[in-house]
Design a protein around this nucleic acid. Sequence first.
DNA 1: CAAAAAAAGATCGCATGCAATCTTGACATG
DNA 2: CATGTCAAGATTGCATGCGATCTTTTTTTG
Lengths: 251, 251
Amino acid sequence: MPKADDPNQTTPKPGQRKAGAATKTPTRTEMVHEALRQAIIEQQLSPGARLPEDMIGDSFGTSRTIAREALLRLSVEGLVDLRPNRGAFVANPTLDEGRDIFVVRRGLERMVVLQLAGQLNADQIAELQRMLDHEEMTGARDEREAIRLAGEFHLRLAEMTGNKLLVHYLRETVSRCSLVLTIYGRPHSVDCGIDEHRQIIEALIAGQGDQAADLMEHHIEQVAGRALLETRKPRSVQEVLSSYATRIAQD
Amino acid sequence: MPKADDPNQTTPKPGQRKAGAATKTPTRTEMVHEALRQAIIEQQLSPGARLPEDMIGDSFGTSRTIAREALLRLSVEGLVDLRPNRGAFVANPTLDEGRDIFVVRRGLERMVVLQLAGQLNADQIAELQRMLDHEEMTGARDEREAIRLAGEFHLRLAEMTGNKLLVHYLRETVSRCSLVLTIYGRPHSVDCGIDEHRQIIEALIAGQGDQAADLMEHHIEQVAGRALLETRKPRSVQEVLSSYATRIAQD
DNA sequence: CAAAAAAAGATCGCATGCAATCTTGACATG
DNA sequence: CATGTCAAGATTGCATGCGATCTTTTTTTG
Protein backbone atom coordinates (compact mmCIF):
# COMPACT_ATOMS: atom_id res chain seq x y z
CA MET A 1 0.00 0.00 0.00
CA PRO A 2 1.37 3.37 -0.99
CA LYS A 3 2.16 5.60 1.93
CA ALA A 4 4.08 8.83 1.65
CA ASP A 5 4.09 11.27 4.53
CA ASP A 6 4.86 14.28 2.42
CA PRO A 7 6.64 16.96 4.42
CA ASN A 8 5.16 19.88 2.46
CA GLN A 9 1.98 19.59 4.43
CA THR A 10 2.68 22.76 6.34
CA THR A 11 4.35 24.55 3.43
CA PRO A 12 2.52 23.62 0.28
CA LYS A 13 4.55 24.57 -2.75
CA PRO A 14 2.75 22.98 -5.68
CA GLY A 15 5.00 24.43 -8.30
CA GLN A 16 8.27 22.53 -8.13
CA ARG A 17 8.59 21.81 -11.81
CA LYS A 18 11.99 22.64 -13.11
CA ALA A 19 14.32 19.64 -13.33
CA GLY A 20 13.14 17.48 -16.23
CA ALA A 21 11.81 19.82 -18.87
CA ALA A 22 10.65 16.85 -20.90
CA THR A 23 8.25 15.54 -18.25
CA LYS A 24 4.99 17.41 -18.51
CA THR A 25 4.16 18.31 -14.93
CA PRO A 26 2.82 15.29 -13.15
CA THR A 27 0.22 17.07 -11.09
CA ARG A 28 -0.56 15.79 -7.62
CA THR A 29 -3.95 14.54 -8.64
CA GLU A 30 -2.47 12.44 -11.41
CA MET A 31 0.10 10.95 -9.09
CA VAL A 32 -2.49 9.90 -6.55
CA HIS A 33 -4.74 8.65 -9.30
CA GLU A 34 -2.02 6.49 -10.78
CA ALA A 35 -0.91 5.20 -7.40
CA LEU A 36 -4.40 4.13 -6.46
CA ARG A 37 -4.89 2.61 -9.86
CA GLN A 38 -1.78 0.49 -9.48
CA ALA A 39 -2.72 -0.48 -5.93
CA ILE A 40 -6.09 -1.74 -7.11
CA ILE A 41 -5.03 -3.71 -10.16
CA GLU A 42 -2.12 -5.21 -8.22
CA GLN A 43 -4.52 -6.50 -5.59
CA GLN A 44 -3.07 -4.38 -2.83
CA LEU A 45 -6.58 -3.07 -2.27
CA SER A 46 -9.20 -5.76 -2.34
CA PRO A 47 -12.53 -5.34 -4.09
CA GLY A 48 -15.23 -3.88 -1.91
CA ALA A 49 -12.79 -2.09 0.39
CA ARG A 50 -13.80 1.37 1.56
CA LEU A 51 -11.73 4.30 0.34
CA PRO A 52 -12.50 7.33 2.52
CA GLU A 53 -11.28 10.63 1.16
CA ASP A 54 -9.61 11.55 4.43
CA MET A 55 -7.67 8.32 4.59
CA ILE A 56 -6.36 8.72 1.06
CA GLY A 57 -5.47 12.34 1.66
CA ASP A 58 -3.55 11.46 4.79
CA SER A 59 -1.77 8.56 3.10
CA PHE A 60 -0.45 10.78 0.34
CA GLY A 61 -0.01 13.92 2.40
CA THR A 62 -2.55 15.90 0.41
CA SER A 63 -6.00 17.25 1.04
CA ARG A 64 -9.29 15.57 0.38
CA THR A 65 -9.65 17.57 -2.81
CA ILE A 66 -6.93 15.55 -4.48
CA ALA A 67 -8.26 12.27 -3.19
CA ARG A 68 -11.72 13.21 -4.39
CA GLU A 69 -10.55 13.99 -7.88
CA ALA A 70 -8.55 10.80 -8.12
CA LEU A 71 -11.52 8.77 -6.94
CA LEU A 72 -13.74 10.43 -9.51
CA ARG A 73 -11.33 9.52 -12.28
CA LEU A 74 -11.11 5.96 -11.03
CA SER A 75 -14.88 5.67 -10.89
CA VAL A 76 -15.09 6.66 -14.53
CA GLU A 77 -12.53 3.96 -15.30
CA GLY A 78 -14.69 1.46 -13.45
CA LEU A 79 -12.11 0.58 -10.82
CA VAL A 80 -13.92 2.44 -8.06
CA ASP A 81 -17.56 2.48 -7.13
CA LEU A 82 -18.75 5.91 -6.04
CA ARG A 83 -21.94 5.88 -3.99
CA PRO A 84 -23.48 9.31 -3.37
CA ASN A 85 -23.19 10.44 0.22
CA ARG A 86 -21.72 7.05 1.07
CA GLY A 87 -18.21 7.20 -0.20
CA ALA A 88 -15.90 5.31 -2.50
CA PHE A 89 -15.25 1.58 -2.65
CA VAL A 90 -12.93 -0.56 -4.69
CA ALA A 91 -15.13 -1.89 -7.47
CA ASN A 92 -16.47 -5.37 -6.97
CA PRO A 93 -18.01 -6.44 -10.27
CA THR A 94 -20.30 -9.42 -10.37
CA LEU A 95 -19.42 -12.48 -12.38
CA ASP A 96 -21.86 -11.41 -15.07
CA GLU A 97 -20.31 -7.96 -15.26
CA GLY A 98 -16.94 -9.64 -15.47
CA ARG A 99 -18.07 -11.63 -18.47
CA ASP A 100 -19.41 -8.46 -20.09
CA ILE A 101 -16.06 -6.80 -19.63
CA PHE A 102 -14.31 -9.65 -21.38
CA VAL A 103 -16.83 -9.49 -24.22
CA VAL A 104 -15.95 -5.84 -24.75
CA ARG A 105 -12.27 -6.56 -24.53
CA ARG A 106 -12.55 -9.27 -27.12
CA GLY A 107 -14.24 -6.85 -29.49
CA LEU A 108 -11.69 -4.11 -28.90
CA GLU A 109 -8.76 -6.44 -29.45
CA ARG A 110 -10.41 -7.61 -32.63
CA MET A 111 -10.49 -4.02 -33.85
CA VAL A 112 -6.81 -3.67 -33.06
CA VAL A 113 -5.61 -6.64 -35.07
CA LEU A 114 -7.90 -5.86 -38.00
CA GLN A 115 -6.39 -2.38 -38.16
CA LEU A 116 -2.89 -3.70 -37.90
CA ALA A 117 -2.90 -6.62 -40.33
CA GLY A 118 -0.32 -6.01 -43.01
CA GLN A 119 0.41 -2.54 -41.69
CA LEU A 120 3.28 -3.23 -39.32
CA ASN A 121 6.66 -1.88 -40.33
CA ALA A 122 10.00 -3.52 -39.58
CA ASP A 123 10.67 -1.54 -36.41
CA GLN A 124 7.31 -2.39 -34.95
CA ILE A 125 7.71 -6.07 -35.74
CA ALA A 126 11.15 -6.08 -34.14
CA GLU A 127 9.80 -4.41 -31.03
CA LEU A 128 7.00 -6.90 -30.68
CA GLN A 129 9.35 -9.83 -31.11
CA ARG A 130 11.58 -8.36 -28.43
CA MET A 131 8.63 -8.03 -26.07
CA LEU A 132 7.67 -11.65 -26.67
CA ASP A 133 11.20 -12.84 -25.97
CA HIS A 134 11.25 -10.84 -22.79
CA GLU A 135 7.89 -12.27 -21.79
CA GLU A 136 9.08 -15.78 -22.42
CA MET A 137 12.18 -15.33 -20.32
CA THR A 138 10.31 -13.82 -17.42
CA GLY A 139 7.39 -16.23 -17.65
CA ALA A 140 8.51 -19.01 -15.36
CA ARG A 141 10.41 -16.82 -12.95
CA ASP A 142 8.16 -13.98 -11.80
CA GLU A 143 4.48 -14.60 -12.24
CA ARG A 144 3.20 -11.14 -11.38
CA GLU A 145 5.71 -9.53 -13.73
CA ALA A 146 4.72 -11.94 -16.46
CA ILE A 147 1.10 -10.90 -16.14
CA ARG A 148 2.09 -7.26 -16.36
CA LEU A 149 4.20 -7.86 -19.45
CA ALA A 150 1.40 -9.75 -21.15
CA GLY A 151 -0.95 -6.83 -20.56
CA GLU A 152 1.62 -4.45 -21.92
CA PHE A 153 1.95 -6.48 -25.08
CA HIS A 154 -1.75 -6.08 -25.79
CA LEU A 155 -1.56 -2.37 -25.04
CA ARG A 156 1.49 -1.80 -27.20
CA LEU A 157 -0.26 -3.52 -30.04
CA ALA A 158 -3.18 -1.13 -29.65
CA GLU A 159 -0.87 1.88 -29.60
CA MET A 160 0.52 0.84 -32.96
CA THR A 161 -2.87 1.47 -34.54
CA GLY A 162 -2.38 5.15 -33.75
CA ASN A 163 -6.02 5.29 -32.70
CA LYS A 164 -6.06 7.21 -29.41
CA LEU A 165 -9.61 6.34 -28.49
CA LEU A 166 -9.07 2.67 -29.14
CA VAL A 167 -6.00 2.71 -26.91
CA HIS A 168 -7.91 4.57 -24.23
CA TYR A 169 -10.75 2.08 -24.16
CA LEU A 170 -8.50 -0.94 -24.32
CA ARG A 171 -6.37 0.35 -21.48
CA GLU A 172 -9.41 0.83 -19.31
CA THR A 173 -10.83 -2.52 -20.21
CA VAL A 174 -7.57 -4.31 -19.52
CA SER A 175 -7.54 -2.69 -16.07
CA ARG A 176 -11.06 -3.86 -15.47
CA CYS A 177 -10.09 -7.33 -16.59
CA SER A 178 -7.28 -7.35 -14.06
CA LEU A 179 -9.76 -6.49 -11.36
CA VAL A 180 -12.13 -9.20 -12.49
CA LEU A 181 -9.32 -11.73 -12.45
CA THR A 182 -8.35 -10.79 -8.92
CA ILE A 183 -11.88 -11.65 -7.86
CA TYR A 184 -12.72 -14.65 -9.96
CA GLY A 185 -9.42 -15.77 -11.43
CA ARG A 186 -7.59 -18.80 -10.21
CA PRO A 187 -4.42 -17.92 -8.38
CA HIS A 188 -1.87 -19.64 -10.58
CA SER A 189 -3.14 -19.22 -14.09
CA VAL A 190 -0.62 -17.58 -16.35
CA ASP A 191 -3.19 -15.68 -18.26
CA CYS A 192 -1.65 -15.15 -21.63
CA GLY A 193 -0.22 -17.99 -23.64
CA ILE A 194 2.91 -16.69 -25.32
CA ASP A 195 2.52 -19.06 -28.21
CA GLU A 196 -0.82 -17.50 -28.94
CA HIS A 197 0.81 -14.10 -28.97
CA ARG A 198 3.36 -15.31 -31.47
CA GLN A 199 0.75 -16.78 -33.74
CA ILE A 200 -1.12 -13.51 -33.76
CA ILE A 201 1.98 -11.61 -34.75
CA GLU A 202 2.65 -14.07 -37.53
CA ALA A 203 -0.82 -13.55 -38.93
CA LEU A 204 -0.43 -9.77 -38.67
CA ILE A 205 2.84 -9.84 -40.57
CA ALA A 206 1.28 -12.05 -43.22
CA GLY A 207 -1.50 -9.52 -43.58
CA GLN A 208 -4.15 -12.08 -42.73
CA GLY A 209 -6.51 -9.86 -40.79
CA ASP A 210 -9.39 -12.26 -40.37
CA GLN A 211 -7.02 -14.98 -39.27
CA ALA A 212 -5.43 -12.68 -36.72
CA ALA A 213 -8.84 -11.56 -35.51
CA ASP A 214 -9.95 -15.15 -34.99
CA LEU A 215 -6.74 -15.96 -33.15
CA MET A 216 -7.12 -12.93 -30.93
CA GLU A 217 -10.74 -13.64 -30.10
CA HIS A 218 -9.84 -17.21 -29.31
CA HIS A 219 -6.94 -15.99 -27.18
CA ILE A 220 -9.13 -13.68 -25.09
CA GLU A 221 -11.75 -16.39 -24.86
CA GLN A 222 -9.10 -18.67 -23.43
CA VAL A 223 -8.17 -16.19 -20.74
CA ALA A 224 -11.77 -15.47 -19.83
CA GLY A 225 -12.70 -19.11 -19.94
CA ARG A 226 -9.88 -20.26 -17.71
CA ALA A 227 -10.79 -17.65 -15.14
CA LEU A 228 -14.52 -17.20 -15.29
CA LEU A 229 -16.17 -20.38 -16.43
CA GLU A 230 -14.12 -23.41 -15.65
CA THR A 231 -13.40 -23.22 -11.95
CA ARG A 232 -15.72 -21.48 -9.56
CA LYS A 233 -13.02 -21.02 -6.99
CA PRO A 234 -14.36 -20.89 -3.45
CA ARG A 235 -14.47 -17.28 -2.37
CA SER A 236 -14.25 -16.02 1.17
CA VAL A 237 -17.45 -15.37 3.07
CA GLN A 238 -16.61 -11.71 3.24
CA GLU A 239 -16.34 -11.41 -0.51
CA VAL A 240 -19.60 -13.22 -1.08
CA LEU A 241 -21.48 -11.12 1.45
CA SER A 242 -20.05 -7.82 0.27
CA SER A 243 -21.15 -8.68 -3.23
CA TYR A 244 -24.67 -9.27 -1.95
CA ALA A 245 -24.51 -6.13 0.14
CA THR A 246 -23.77 -3.94 -2.86
CA ARG A 247 -26.65 -5.46 -4.75
CA ILE A 248 -29.01 -4.63 -1.90
CA ALA A 249 -27.68 -1.12 -1.45
CA GLN A 250 -28.36 -0.29 -5.07
CA ASP A 251 -32.12 -0.48 -4.57
CA MET B 1 -26.66 28.22 -23.66
CA PRO B 2 -27.96 27.05 -20.29
CA LYS B 3 -28.30 29.81 -17.79
CA ALA B 4 -29.96 29.38 -14.42
CA ASP B 5 -29.50 32.04 -11.83
CA ASP B 6 -30.24 29.77 -8.93
CA PRO B 7 -31.66 31.71 -6.00
CA ASN B 8 -30.17 29.40 -3.36
CA GLN B 9 -26.86 31.08 -3.78
CA THR B 10 -27.12 32.72 -0.42
CA THR B 11 -28.96 29.85 1.24
CA PRO B 12 -27.57 26.65 -0.19
CA LYS B 13 -29.83 23.73 0.67
CA PRO B 14 -28.49 20.86 -1.39
CA GLY B 15 -30.76 18.27 0.14
CA GLN B 16 -34.17 18.81 -1.40
CA ARG B 17 -34.93 15.22 -2.22
CA LYS B 18 -38.39 14.27 -1.15
CA ALA B 19 -40.88 14.49 -4.03
CA GLY B 20 -40.04 11.66 -6.39
CA ALA B 21 -38.67 8.83 -4.29
CA ALA B 22 -37.84 6.94 -7.45
CA THR B 23 -35.35 9.51 -8.76
CA LYS B 24 -32.00 8.92 -7.16
CA THR B 25 -30.78 12.33 -6.08
CA PRO B 26 -29.49 14.21 -9.08
CA THR B 27 -26.54 15.90 -7.40
CA ARG B 28 -25.54 19.37 -8.51
CA THR B 29 -22.40 18.13 -10.18
CA GLU B 30 -24.37 15.69 -12.28
CA MET B 31 -26.83 18.35 -13.34
CA VAL B 32 -24.11 20.71 -14.47
CA HIS B 33 -22.27 17.86 -16.14
CA GLU B 34 -25.35 16.82 -18.10
CA ALA B 35 -26.23 20.40 -19.02
CA LEU B 36 -22.78 21.09 -20.40
CA ARG B 37 -22.80 17.78 -22.19
CA GLN B 38 -26.04 18.62 -23.94
CA ALA B 39 -24.84 22.12 -24.75
CA ILE B 40 -21.76 20.72 -26.44
CA ILE B 41 -23.32 17.96 -28.49
CA GLU B 42 -26.14 20.28 -29.55
CA GLN B 43 -23.62 22.77 -30.90
CA GLN B 44 -24.58 25.48 -28.44
CA LEU B 45 -20.92 25.60 -27.49
CA SER B 46 -18.61 25.49 -30.44
CA PRO B 47 -15.45 23.41 -30.51
CA GLY B 48 -12.41 25.23 -29.21
CA ALA B 49 -14.42 27.59 -27.01
CA ARG B 50 -12.96 28.37 -23.61
CA LEU B 51 -14.83 27.10 -20.55
CA PRO B 52 -13.52 28.94 -17.48
CA GLU B 53 -14.52 27.43 -14.16
CA ASP B 54 -15.74 30.76 -12.84
CA MET B 55 -17.98 31.38 -15.81
CA ILE B 56 -19.61 27.97 -15.54
CA GLY B 57 -20.06 28.36 -11.81
CA ASP B 58 -21.72 31.72 -12.27
CA SER B 59 -23.95 30.44 -15.06
CA PHE B 60 -25.34 27.67 -12.92
CA GLY B 61 -25.25 29.50 -9.61
CA THR B 62 -22.73 27.13 -8.07
CA SER B 63 -19.12 27.31 -7.06
CA ARG B 64 -16.09 26.49 -9.12
CA THR B 65 -15.86 23.13 -7.39
CA ILE B 66 -18.94 21.90 -9.20
CA ALA B 67 -17.82 23.29 -12.51
CA ARG B 68 -14.42 21.71 -12.03
CA GLU B 69 -15.86 18.29 -11.38
CA ALA B 70 -18.19 18.51 -14.36
CA LEU B 71 -15.33 19.55 -16.60
CA LEU B 72 -13.22 16.67 -15.37
CA ARG B 73 -15.97 14.21 -16.21
CA LEU B 74 -16.42 15.76 -19.63
CA SER B 75 -12.72 15.57 -20.32
CA VAL B 76 -12.78 11.86 -19.60
CA GLU B 77 -15.64 11.54 -22.06
CA GLY B 78 -13.59 13.37 -24.65
CA LEU B 79 -15.96 16.31 -25.04
CA VAL B 80 -13.69 18.73 -23.23
CA ASP B 81 -9.99 19.31 -23.52
CA LEU B 82 -8.34 20.02 -20.18
CA ARG B 83 -4.99 21.76 -20.43
CA PRO B 84 -3.04 21.93 -17.16
CA ASN B 85 -2.84 25.44 -15.76
CA ARG B 86 -4.57 26.69 -18.89
CA GLY B 87 -8.16 25.76 -18.43
CA ALA B 88 -10.87 23.83 -20.21
CA PHE B 89 -11.92 24.04 -23.84
CA VAL B 90 -14.64 22.39 -25.85
CA ALA B 91 -12.86 19.54 -27.60
CA ASN B 92 -11.82 20.19 -31.14
CA PRO B 93 -10.73 16.86 -32.62
CA THR B 94 -8.77 16.77 -35.84
CA LEU B 95 -10.16 15.09 -38.90
CA ASP B 96 -7.93 12.10 -38.27
CA GLU B 97 -9.13 11.80 -34.72
CA GLY B 98 -12.66 12.04 -36.02
CA ARG B 99 -12.04 9.12 -38.32
CA ASP B 100 -10.58 7.13 -35.44
CA ILE B 101 -13.69 7.79 -33.40
CA PHE B 102 -15.89 6.44 -36.16
CA VAL B 103 -13.68 3.38 -36.46
CA VAL B 104 -14.24 2.64 -32.79
CA ARG B 105 -17.94 3.28 -33.08
CA ARG B 106 -18.18 0.90 -35.98
CA GLY B 107 -16.55 -1.81 -33.93
CA LEU B 108 -18.73 -1.19 -30.90
CA GLU B 109 -21.90 -1.25 -32.93
CA ARG B 110 -20.74 -4.47 -34.50
CA MET B 111 -20.43 -5.99 -31.03
CA VAL B 112 -23.95 -4.87 -30.23
CA VAL B 113 -25.65 -6.50 -33.19
CA LEU B 114 -23.62 -9.69 -32.87
CA GLN B 115 -24.79 -9.99 -29.28
CA LEU B 116 -28.36 -9.26 -30.18
CA ALA B 117 -28.88 -11.44 -33.26
CA GLY B 118 -31.69 -13.90 -32.58
CA GLN B 119 -31.90 -12.81 -28.95
CA LEU B 120 -34.57 -10.13 -29.18
CA ASN B 121 -37.88 -10.89 -27.53
CA ALA B 122 -41.26 -9.68 -28.75
CA ASP B 123 -41.39 -6.64 -26.48
CA GLN B 124 -37.99 -5.46 -27.58
CA ILE B 125 -38.85 -5.91 -31.25
CA ALA B 126 -42.07 -3.97 -30.78
CA GLU B 127 -40.24 -1.14 -29.03
CA LEU B 128 -37.67 -0.90 -31.78
CA GLN B 129 -40.34 -0.85 -34.47
CA ARG B 130 -42.10 1.93 -32.59
CA MET B 131 -38.92 3.93 -32.41
CA LEU B 132 -38.39 3.55 -36.12
CA ASP B 133 -41.92 4.70 -36.89
CA HIS B 134 -41.43 7.68 -34.66
CA GLU B 135 -38.14 8.45 -36.37
CA GLU B 136 -39.74 8.23 -39.77
CA MET B 137 -42.55 10.59 -38.84
CA THR B 138 -40.24 13.16 -37.31
CA GLY B 139 -37.66 12.84 -40.06
CA ALA B 140 -38.81 15.46 -42.50
CA ARG B 141 -40.19 17.86 -39.92
CA ASP B 142 -37.56 18.53 -37.29
CA GLU B 143 -34.03 17.80 -38.36
CA ARG B 144 -32.32 18.22 -35.02
CA GLU B 145 -34.88 16.03 -33.31
CA ALA B 146 -34.44 13.41 -35.99
CA ILE B 147 -30.72 13.28 -35.35
CA ARG B 148 -31.34 12.87 -31.65
CA LEU B 149 -33.80 10.06 -32.22
CA ALA B 150 -31.42 8.25 -34.53
CA GLY B 151 -28.75 8.35 -31.87
CA GLU B 152 -31.20 7.07 -29.30
CA PHE B 153 -32.04 4.15 -31.51
CA HIS B 154 -28.43 3.04 -31.56
CA LEU B 155 -28.16 3.50 -27.81
CA ARG B 156 -31.36 1.62 -27.07
CA LEU B 157 -30.10 -1.25 -29.16
CA ALA B 158 -26.94 -1.33 -27.07
CA GLU B 159 -28.90 -1.30 -23.85
CA MET B 160 -30.74 -4.40 -24.97
CA THR B 161 -27.51 -6.36 -24.81
CA GLY B 162 -27.54 -5.84 -21.05
CA ASN B 163 -23.81 -5.15 -21.24
CA LYS B 164 -23.24 -2.05 -19.10
CA LEU B 165 -19.71 -1.42 -20.28
CA LEU B 166 -20.67 -1.72 -23.91
CA VAL B 167 -23.48 0.79 -23.39
CA HIS B 168 -21.13 3.12 -21.57
CA TYR B 169 -18.55 3.11 -24.33
CA LEU B 170 -21.09 3.40 -27.10
CA ARG B 171 -22.78 6.34 -25.41
CA GLU B 172 -19.47 8.14 -25.08
CA THR B 173 -18.50 7.37 -28.63
CA VAL B 174 -21.84 8.53 -30.01
CA SER B 175 -21.34 11.82 -28.16
CA ARG B 176 -17.91 12.15 -29.65
CA CYS B 177 -19.32 11.43 -33.07
CA SER B 178 -21.84 14.21 -32.62
CA LEU B 179 -19.03 16.58 -31.84
CA VAL B 180 -17.07 15.44 -34.87
CA LEU B 181 -20.09 15.94 -37.07
CA THR B 182 -20.58 19.47 -35.78
CA ILE B 183 -17.06 20.24 -36.93
CA TYR B 184 -16.76 18.30 -40.17
CA GLY B 185 -20.30 17.28 -41.02
CA ARG B 186 -22.29 18.90 -43.74
CA PRO B 187 -25.13 20.98 -42.38
CA HIS B 188 -28.09 19.19 -43.91
CA SER B 189 -27.14 15.56 -43.92
CA VAL B 190 -29.69 13.43 -42.14
CA ASP B 191 -27.13 11.15 -40.69
CA CYS B 192 -28.97 7.91 -40.25
CA GLY B 193 -30.88 6.29 -43.05
CA ILE B 194 -34.01 4.84 -41.54
CA ASP B 195 -34.21 2.12 -44.15
CA GLU B 196 -30.82 0.93 -43.04
CA HIS B 197 -32.09 0.78 -39.49
CA ARG B 198 -35.02 -1.33 -40.60
CA GLN B 199 -32.80 -3.74 -42.48
CA ILE B 200 -30.62 -4.21 -39.44
CA ILE B 201 -33.62 -5.01 -37.28
CA GLU B 202 -34.82 -7.52 -39.86
CA ALA B 203 -31.48 -9.28 -39.80
CA LEU B 204 -31.45 -9.29 -36.01
CA ILE B 205 -34.91 -10.85 -35.86
CA ALA B 206 -33.87 -13.45 -38.39
CA GLY B 207 -30.91 -14.29 -36.21
CA GLN B 208 -28.44 -13.51 -38.98
CA GLY B 209 -25.69 -12.00 -36.88
CA ASP B 210 -23.04 -11.68 -39.56
CA GLN B 211 -25.53 -10.14 -41.93
CA ALA B 212 -26.61 -7.64 -39.27
CA ALA B 213 -22.99 -6.85 -38.45
CA ASP B 214 -22.20 -6.16 -42.09
CA LEU B 215 -25.25 -3.95 -42.42
CA MET B 216 -24.34 -2.05 -39.31
CA GLU B 217 -20.74 -1.51 -40.34
CA HIS B 218 -21.90 -0.36 -43.72
CA HIS B 219 -24.42 1.94 -42.06
CA ILE B 220 -21.82 3.61 -39.85
CA GLU B 221 -19.47 3.78 -42.80
CA GLN B 222 -22.15 5.67 -44.68
CA VAL B 223 -22.55 8.22 -41.92
CA ALA B 224 -18.82 8.70 -41.53
CA GLY B 225 -18.30 8.78 -45.27
CA ARG B 226 -20.93 11.38 -45.92
CA ALA B 227 -19.49 13.61 -43.26
CA LEU B 228 -15.77 13.06 -43.24
CA LEU B 229 -14.62 12.00 -46.66
CA GLU B 230 -16.89 13.19 -49.38
CA THR B 231 -17.22 16.90 -48.86
CA ARG B 232 -14.54 18.93 -47.21
CA LYS B 233 -16.95 21.64 -46.31
CA PRO B 234 -15.31 25.04 -46.03
CA ARG B 235 -14.93 25.85 -42.37
CA SER B 236 -14.87 29.26 -40.83
CA VAL B 237 -11.53 30.99 -40.46
CA GLN B 238 -11.93 30.99 -36.72
CA GLU B 239 -12.31 27.23 -36.58
CA VAL B 240 -9.34 26.64 -38.80
CA LEU B 241 -7.13 29.00 -36.86
CA SER B 242 -8.18 27.73 -33.47
CA SER B 243 -7.27 24.25 -34.60
CA TYR B 244 -3.83 25.48 -35.60
CA ALA B 245 -3.50 27.45 -32.41
CA THR B 246 -4.10 24.39 -30.26
CA ARG B 247 -1.57 22.45 -32.26
CA ILE B 248 1.04 25.13 -31.66
CA ALA B 249 0.21 25.49 -28.01
CA GLN B 250 0.74 21.78 -27.43
CA ASP B 251 4.49 22.04 -28.14
C1' DC C 1 10.68 52.33 -33.13
C1' DA C 2 11.25 47.39 -32.17
C1' DA C 3 12.20 44.05 -28.83
C1' DA C 4 12.87 42.60 -24.31
C1' DA C 5 11.56 43.01 -19.45
C1' DA C 6 8.38 43.78 -15.95
C1' DA C 7 3.98 44.50 -13.96
C1' DA C 8 -1.01 43.66 -13.88
C1' DG C 9 -4.82 40.78 -14.58
C1' DA C 10 -7.08 36.45 -15.20
C1' DT C 11 -7.49 31.72 -14.11
C1' DC C 12 -6.13 27.50 -12.17
C1' DG C 13 -4.30 24.01 -8.29
C1' DC C 14 -5.08 22.95 -3.98
C1' DA C 15 -6.36 23.28 1.09
C1' DT C 16 -9.72 24.04 4.34
C1' DG C 17 -14.24 24.93 6.65
C1' DC C 18 -19.14 24.26 7.35
C1' DA C 19 -23.52 22.20 6.70
C1' DA C 20 -26.00 18.02 5.12
C1' DT C 21 -26.25 13.22 5.17
C1' DC C 22 -25.30 8.65 6.55
C1' DT C 23 -23.92 5.39 10.22
C1' DT C 24 -23.53 3.72 14.76
C1' DG C 25 -24.58 3.04 19.28
C1' DA C 26 -27.31 4.36 23.39
C1' DC C 27 -31.69 4.59 25.27
C1' DA C 28 -36.45 4.06 25.81
C1' DT C 29 -40.62 1.21 25.19
C1' DG C 30 -43.65 -2.59 24.24
C1' DC D 1 -35.52 -9.42 25.36
C1' DA D 2 -36.61 -7.56 20.81
C1' DT D 3 -37.69 -3.36 18.46
C1' DG D 4 -38.17 1.47 17.48
C1' DT D 5 -36.27 6.24 18.36
C1' DC D 6 -32.88 9.52 18.81
C1' DA D 7 -28.42 11.54 19.66
C1' DA D 8 -23.31 11.38 18.72
C1' DG D 9 -19.74 10.44 15.43
C1' DA D 10 -17.99 9.88 10.90
C1' DT D 11 -17.89 11.21 6.10
C1' DT D 12 -19.37 13.42 2.12
C1' DG D 13 -21.13 17.75 -0.82
C1' DC D 14 -20.07 22.06 -1.66
C1' DA D 15 -18.17 26.91 -1.13
C1' DT D 16 -14.43 29.79 -0.52
C1' DG D 17 -9.65 31.56 0.05
C1' DC D 18 -4.79 31.87 -1.13
C1' DG D 19 -0.75 31.17 -3.67
C1' DA D 20 1.02 29.70 -8.31
C1' DT D 21 0.95 29.91 -13.17
C1' DC D 22 -0.28 31.61 -17.54
C1' DT D 23 -1.63 35.66 -20.41
C1' DT D 24 -1.76 40.32 -21.59
C1' DT D 25 -0.46 44.92 -21.17
C1' DT D 26 2.69 48.32 -19.99
C1' DT D 27 7.16 50.02 -19.41
C1' DT D 28 11.89 50.14 -20.25
C1' DT D 29 15.98 49.96 -23.14
C1' DG D 30 18.96 49.33 -27.18
